[in-house]
Design a protein around this nucleic acid. Structure first.
Length: 907
RNA sequence: GGGCGGGUAGCUCAGUGGUUAGAGCCCUCGGCUUACACCCGAGUGGUCGCGGGUUCGAGUCCCGCCCCGCCCACCA
């Protein structure tokens, strides 16, 4: 193996091999485990949110695959209607053309060309991340099959009256010329004004000009340009200031129209003057007020944001912002404008082109959501779908209970065209295929027109879990892999995606789309800001892969993420993942180096295959304590990982693997193994190599879901794989050692506890050495150990001898139950270890240290004694806890005695 | 305004009512020891946001408050 690991070369090498050998195709045998990817926008490039989301899925998928499940991960992309259309329009603009110049068909052709050329970016990037998707199942929301699913669903809903066309107030982008869903609006702070306008009260007006009015009401507005569309003013019904106005009418300035004063709860008394002008056609709340009171809706604006003739001859044709200025000026001239205040508020912008969004009355298609929501709530309530973390179920219910109809039509060209047709006689129907004749009047194809609008992009995404598996056909995939198992996403799309998928699954498949919803956090920068292009604070996953490797990116993300908690990340964090990869690589080199010295040694015997053939592990002499300890620790680490992964706690799983490999295997076992590996007993050498191969083979497989590339490379370099085609991703996930094997090898919790205590002893010895400031290399040291019990003394003798060897001490003296005085010492689970010096000791420093420790111990002792003197504690605490405290007290007393004696001997 | 999350070491975060609250990074000290300096060893560093309460025992449970963040609604 090379001295330095080269992730670039290794990562570039493996993905094509995996893909070409079909490593990620479902096996067809075992328990089905399936996941559909949240389809990224086809225009998208991989950002940190994807990296987190897709790594989580890949960890789950690889884990299940290794466990022998029939694993399918369906990848794909979303056609992203408005986003994609904008990208192509932008390209067209460079040629000096608009989409209208090409016409609808040619434009769509252009979009497809664009998709063919550039649409594969994110899909390539998923490969760079190492995602083990089955690319033979790749889907695109505008694919023929998925389009058929969309038409099928729409037609069925049309016929069952689950969709309807209605005049409704929608968000409208005047530049894109389309309706936008609420989530396609970005609210941004705006420094605007509040204009205070006088509306004369009818029946008490005393003059013609504004100045002359003695009786008027004051209305505050941020949008004076909508004034010609006003059909009422409203006050809060409980506002005693305006009780006298109920039932009165006022004159709408500049128009002379008489409009009513209405009481409505929607009005806030505290805001402005407490009187609101109501413009039902241009404000969503006013629209609702209008509906409640049966007001007329006057649409005064064109789709491009200019005023129409209903705004009045003086304003028709003006842009909305020009019109605002003119109306303000006219109000002023007419004496209606009282004063102006500065006012900051939030204004909605189109998420694609950033134009200020207009609320506009228009004919749109809607889905009736209430009938779909019932069942979708039921399946979560009864546990057929489980959210992780559970608390998001509340968020889900909250939204579902207050669900509003879904506006699904968009006035753009790129997307699924609404399959609603009308013939010349006005017959209307929906159909999955383009009809050649009207089903009602025999009008021919040339007399039939299709609705020009397209469907909201989410209208295809909500079918994703079954449309990707072949629906509406009854495919084998659908039968085997639906419902899918896990759905992983960030909580911000619970509403417009997760909830809708659940509704669609229940409605069209009569079954849930997935069993578990796994919600992870949003990736943020070190300051806690959402990563975004406009802030320029995005970390580019590809840059990280280039600098640190995909494995490093993946591992760091996993060990940083907690369920449902946002991920704060900065560039240097990826060193953790990189360093871990390097550590594994070096451990592999070490193991290989020693394995080469064992004749006929084969790592393939330790690949976890059936048969459990491990010729060297049990051969010859019995296993050492260290051997048994690391095998037992491997088992514990495996259990910890399995539990964590089953609970979607990726951080815990990653940390369990990290701690096991680094702190346990490398820091302790490899070091301890060197004694035998560099020793002169060939049988024992072979045995140790066998244990290294067994434990490291397990470690590689356990880490593989997190770091697929480096583990695969080592798997082959060492020869766990018996051929080039064999992949670690198909190697079996480790199983706990069988009971008989554990009994034969002597693997149990006792050996873990004992060796852990021995490690404490060694650590204490090291600490002693480095804590003695006066110790010079020439000083000779010997260890003196005082065992707690006679029984422990025998064990301690052996332990301390190895400790002395470890630390270069000249000798060992074992005592039992005696107080060690005059020597720097440290306590461990096995006993007290002290250093006997044949050099000089800084008595003052030692004295000071001893005094500090005594003070500390006395403090603890007081706490424990207080507890043991407390009747209620003795009466109510569990016996085990009481015993624990009693033992603790004895220990503290003994420790104190030793320290005090030390202090005395130091003078 | 409604809902949710967070506040624990300088930083990023773990922490299943029960010994003296942990990890990584940072920092200090000592080491190029023949897998690895992307390393090894040893340390320094905490009124667990504040105030009450429940309990034998609270970082952990309850109530109130203060900050930070997110989501939803709204801001005429």
């Amino acid at each position: 193996m090379d001295k330095h690991y080269d992730p670039k070369a290794v990562e570039a090498k493996w993905y094509p091999i995996w893909e070409n050998t079909g490593a990620f195709k479902p096996s067809g045998t075992g328990k089905p485990y399936s996941v559909v990817i949240p389809p990224p926008n086809v225009t998208g490039i991989l950002h940190m949110g994807h990296a987190l989301n897709d790594t989580i899925q890949d960890v789950l998928v690889r884990w299940h695959r290794m466990r022998g499940d029939d694993t399918l991960w369906v990848p794909g992309t979303d056609h992203a209607g408005i986003a994609t259309q904008n990208v192509v329009e932008k390209a067209l603009r460079k040629e000096g053309k608009r989409r209208q110049d090409l016409g609808r068909e040619a434009f769509i052709e252009r979009v497809w060309e664009w998709k063919k050329q550039y649409g594969g970016t994110i899909v390539k990037q998923l490969r760079a991340l190492g995602c083990s998707c089955d690319w033979s199942h790749e889907r695109f929301t505008m694919d023929e099959g998925l389009s058929r699913a969309v038409a099928e669903v729409f037609t069925e809903m049309y016929e069952k009256d689950l969709v309807y066309r209605g005049n409704y107030i929608v968000n409208w982008c005047p530049r894109c010329g389309t309706a936008l869903a609420d989530d396609e609006i970005e609210h941004e702070p705006n420094h605007g004004h509040l204009w205070y306008v006088r509306y004369p009260v009818v029946g008490s007006a005393l003059g013609v000009k504004g100045e002359a009015y003695q009786d008027y009401i004051m209305v505050a507005t941020t949008r004076p340009e909508t004034l010609p569309g006003d059909t009422a003013v409203a006050v809060n019904p409980k506002d005693e200031r305006y009780l006298h106005l109920h039932g009165k009418t006022v004159i709408l300035p500049l128009t002379g129209r008489e409009i009513p004063v209405l009481p409505d709860d929607y009005v806030e008394r505290e805001f402005g003057t407490g009187i609101v002008k109501i413009t039902p056609a241009h404000d969503p709340n006013d629209f609702l007020v209008g509906k409640r009171h049966g007001l007329e809706e006057i649409n005064i604006m064109n789709g491009d944001g200019t005023m129409n003739e209903l705004a009045g001859a003086a304003y028709a044709g003006l842009d909305r912002f020009a019109c605002r200025e003119k109306i303000v000026a006219d109000l002023d001239v007419g004496g209606f404008l009282d004063h102006v205040e500065d006012y900051d508020n939030q204004v909605g912008h189109c998420y694609r082109c950033h134009t200020v969004v207009e609320s506009r009355l228009s004919k749109q298609w809607f889905v009736r959501m209430k009938p779909l929501a019932e069942k979708a709530m039921e399946v979560v309530r009864d546990g057929r779908i489980v959210f992780t973390p559970k608390r998001y179920e509340n968020t889900y219910f909250n939204w579902m209970e207050n669900i509003r109809d879904w506006c699904i039509s968009r006035q753009i060209w790129w997307g699924h065209r609404i399959p609603v047709y009308t013939c010349e006689c006005g017959h209307e129907w929906a159909a999955t295929e383009k009809p050649s004749v009207c089903p009602k009047c025999d009008a021919g194809a040339d007399k039939i027109t299709q609705d020009p609008d397209v469907l909201d992009t989410w209208f295809s995404s909500w079918l994703w879990p079954f449309s990707t598996l072949g629906w509406p056909d009854k495919t084998a995939d659908l039968a085997r892999y639906y419902p899918t198992t896990d759905l992983c996403t960030a909580p911000d799309i619970i509403f417009f995606w997760v909830a809708r998928m659940i509704m669609a699954g229940c409605r069209f498949m009569d079954d849930v789309p997935f069993r578990n919803v796994v919600l992870h956090g949003v990736v943020r920068d070190a300051q806690g800001r959402k990563m975004s292009k406009s802030l320029g604070n995005s970390l580019d996953p590809l840059e990280i892969i280039g600098k640190y490797s995909a494995d490093a990116l993946r591992f760091t993300l996993m060990q940083t993420t907690s369920p449902g908690i946002d991920v704060f990340i900065s560039m240097d964090k990826f060193e953790i993942g990189r360093n871990f990869g390097t550590k594994i690589w070096n451990a592999a080199r070490f193991i290989q180096m020693h394995a080469q010295k064992v004749e006929g040694f084969s790592f393939a015997d330790y690949a976890g295959g059936s048969g459990g053939c491990k010729p060297h592990v049990g051969a010859g002499t019995a296993l050492s304590l260290d051997d048994r300890h690391i095998l037992a620790t491997a088992d514990a680490a495996l259990a910890a990982m399995d539990t964590a992964l089953a609970g979607y706690r990726f951080q815990d799983a990653a940390l369990a693997a990290y701690d096991f490999v680094w702190s346990q295997f490398c820091d302790w076992y490899l070091e301890e193994a060197k004694r035998d590996l560099y020793g002169d007993d060939p049988a024992r050498r072979a045995q140790v190599v066998g244990i290294l191969a067994e434990v490291f083979g397990r470690a590689l497989r356990m880490i593989h879901p997190f770091m697929p590339f480096v583990t695969e490379e080592i798997w082959h370099q060492l020869g766990y794989a018996s051929s080039d085609e064999e992949t670690i991703s198909h190697a079996p996930w480790p199983k706990p050692f069988a009971a008989e094997q554990k009994a034969a090898w002597g693997i149990d919790e006792d050996v873990r506890a004992y060796v852990n205590a021995r490690h404490d002893l060694i650590t204490a010895g090291r600490a002693l050495r480095s804590s003695i400031s006066a110790l010079k290399p020439s000083d000779k040291v010997a260890f003196v150990v005082s065992a707690k019990t006679a029984e422990a003394a025998d064990r301690l003798r052996a332990e301390t001898e190895s400790l002395a060897g470890f630390l270069g001490a000249s000798g060992v003296e074992v005592l039992c139950g005696e107080t060690l005085s005059g020597m720097p010492s440290a306590d461990t689970a096995l006993g007290t270890v002290a250093l006997k010096l044949e050099g000089s000791v800084d008595a003052e420093a030692e004295k000071k240290k001893a005094q500090e420790e005594i003070a500390k111990l006395e403090g603890f002792l007081r706490t424990v004694e207080a507890k043991l003197g407390n009747e209620t504690f003795l009466g109510k605490a569990p016996a085990a806890i009481v015993e624990q405290q009693k033992a603790r007290k004895e220990e503290l007393l003994a420790d104190l005695a030793r320290k005090r004696a030390l202090l005395v001997s130091l003078g």
